[in-house]
Write a protein that binds this DNA or RNA. Structure first.
Lengths: 366, 366
DNA sequence: AATGGGGTCGCACAGGTGTGCAATAAGGAG
DNA sequence: CTCCTTATTGCACACCTGTGCGACCCCATT
């Protein structure tokens, strides 16, 4: 029929209106090699059950044809899709992006593919993407810095699939996780600031109840106490991990009767906003105010001044999460929760404390 | 047999050593509803061929069981996996991350899942991830700012799958793409700088041969020509789109006998590095040197000073790419290449030109 | 009452791959 | 020469879902 039609357009419209011509299947290879399809399957898996010459011939034909076994058919019979789902609030977040990078690399090394499930911090979408992963029959799931996690955690459990969390904000919900040493990191920052003579140190945190914030704030308070500095509730404010909110929070701190001489920020994004607010008022960093962050995102070392912060091995954390997920998927139940070290990186945004305006610490005591 | 074993550990070790208990299948639902499995299939697809009450009953049972049809089995029979592959050099790159965000959102809206294929700019891995996508039988592919693209482009074509490129660096290889208006964007930047009186304007580009760089550099030259400013080859240097290289490049420019009064950077990452280099020498922006970027990444407005740059609607570009891919997948061959507008965002990093040291433009002419 | 038609439902098969088991052939031991 | 062992290969089935087609029932029409 087709041959009756003149012209050469027919050859180009392969996918116009209908499906593309199907990929070569294992049976096609079998026919070309004059064997049965199970033999092809075995040959391609380097099974010792097939005669070397036959196997060689089959492999050659497969290579020439560009044949690649369908992972979906294999998944159906194997009951393993060799896929994992990566749930993030948004890949726009540099932290999530770095973790994703590590996860993807490691998964790829093991022959696994990763489904990117971006919830965009929308609870409705959050549920839908997880449902989607369930339908896709992923072998495992990694969730990074889940914020609205509580909403769909039961749903995740129902999936009956291994799950590893990265910097979970709701600890206890799952057994397996990779966490940064929040306390040690925050403590190192505070020691550093106190060592520079700061006594009025502010803290811009995340939303209430987030585990990272809880732990970092706790270390902040503890460090103050150990240094004999009284905790001032007005200096510990809430942010949301973003720049815009950080600006508002910082402005609030600058409006205080007695401005802080240092600001300890929940993360680098918050520090970015805080620095902007400080500069906008014509104040200098660190001459007037020192600023610290947490995460050590790619831009932090390039700010003016470069940001003193806590380095978080985000990519490595993604790798560890994936490695642990593999152990889980292969049946190991013994995988514990991993904690990675937090390392203080001192740069230019911190300096010696400016003495309080007109008031020495002593005179204030009276 | 199992009942002979005492203790309650057996119930917990579902995945220890062997596979998890299989998910309920369509046949399980059929048995519970006392119908055949095709009826279940039809009921769940809201087919009019099944009696309303029967359908209702089936849907109820399915909901109670938490049944979700296996996308892999469906994919096998349908020959459509409802998945797309997203190839990026690295999601660590904020540009790629934003595009990924747009792609994922749109795909999700259509019930598609996206495989994240991160090549990490490694040619070997680049090939392997694409091979992987082929095995997975993705319905379509999106490639962002492909750099080593030429290496595996033939491989992509062989897949016989619709492909959409975002900011392709090797135009002509594929028909369908989404591009930023490089020329218009770069031109707007140059007009802005020239309008501020700058005459010695440097350009820090990307590697040789990348389309974005070629076009932006061309507009740079053209704008100079139109303003009657002679092109100085020493002022147009190469970078690689990253901060570290940008610092070196900027230092080279600052070492020149006659420093530029403005630097037009290929992108924001480059500008980030350039600003660092300038600040490191104690020079002021824009008092001593104006700096411009391209992309308008999330941090650009928060730098000190905030960066004048060209806004690129990255997320929207991801959405458009995905929308066009859908059209392609549904058989439309008419999808043209899309070009999105580039918008100049003037911030604080650009200002009036400092007069050249000891030399007026006129005296130089002589 | 016979016929026809529409509404419901199940049978059977396809889609591509992996694997247990049987079948066949070849070769060696008795 | 016969029997047994080993090497090699094919048959048949399973995995789970979607769909064409036939079967059946019920009701209205002639």
């Amino acid at each position: 029929m087709f041959e009756k039609e003149p012209g050469r357009t027919a050859g180009l419209m392969h996918s116009a209106g209908q499906r593309a011509p199907r990929q070569p299947s294992i049976k096609d290879i079998a026919r070309l090699a004059h064997v049965s399809h199970p033999t092809v399957s075995r040959a391609l898996h380097n099974s010792p059950l097939v005669r070397p010459e036959t196997a060689e011939k089959i492999r050659r034909i497969a290579a020439e044809t560009g044949y690649r076994a369908s992972a979906v058919a294999r998944g159906l019979v194997t009951r393993q899709t060799r896929t994992v789902g990566l749930v993030v609030t948004t890949v726009s977040d540099p932290f999530a992006a770095e973790v994703a990078c590590g996860v993807e690399q490691t998964a790829n090394d093991y022959g696994y593919a990763v489904f990117l499930a971006d919830s965009n911090a929308d609870p409705k979408r959050e549920r839908s993407v997880v449902q989607e992963l369930a339908e896709r029959r992923v072998d495992g799931i990694i969730v990074t810095s889940s914020r609205v996690g509580a909403l769909y955690l039961p749903l995740l459990k129902q999936l009956n699939v291994p799950i590893v969390l990265v910097n979970d904000q709701f600890p206890g919900a799952f057994v397996h996780s990779v966490m940064i040493a929040n306390r040690a990191g925050s403590r190192a920052v505070m020691k550093h600031l106190i060592g520079l003579g700061h006594k009025r140190i502010a803290y811009i945190g995340d939303r209430n109840g987030y585990q990272s914030d809880v732990e970092r704030l706790a270390s902040y308070k503890q460090a103050l106490a150990e240094a004999g500095i009284e905790f001032d509730a007005k200096l510990a404010v809430k942010g949301n991990g973003g720049t815009a909110t950080a600006i508002k929070a910082m402005n609030g701190l600058l409006d205080l009767d007695r401005q802080p001489t240092a600001v300890c920020c929940y993360n680098d994004m918050t520090a970015l906003g805080a620095m902007r607010a400080i500069h906008a008022r014509g104040l200098r960093i660190p001459a007037d105010i020192s600023v610290t962050g947490f995460d050590d995102l790619f831009f932090s070392g390039y700010l003016d001044p470069p940001l003193t912060t806590v380095h978080q091995p985000m990519r490595r954390m993604g790798e560890i999460a994936m490695e642990n997920l593999f152990k889980l998927m292969s049946g190991e139940q013994s995988v514990a929760q991993a904690e990675v070290k937090a390392k203080l990186i001192v740069r230019g945004s911190t300096g010696k404390a400016k003495t309080a305006r007109g008031l020495t610490p002593k005179s204030r005591r009276r």
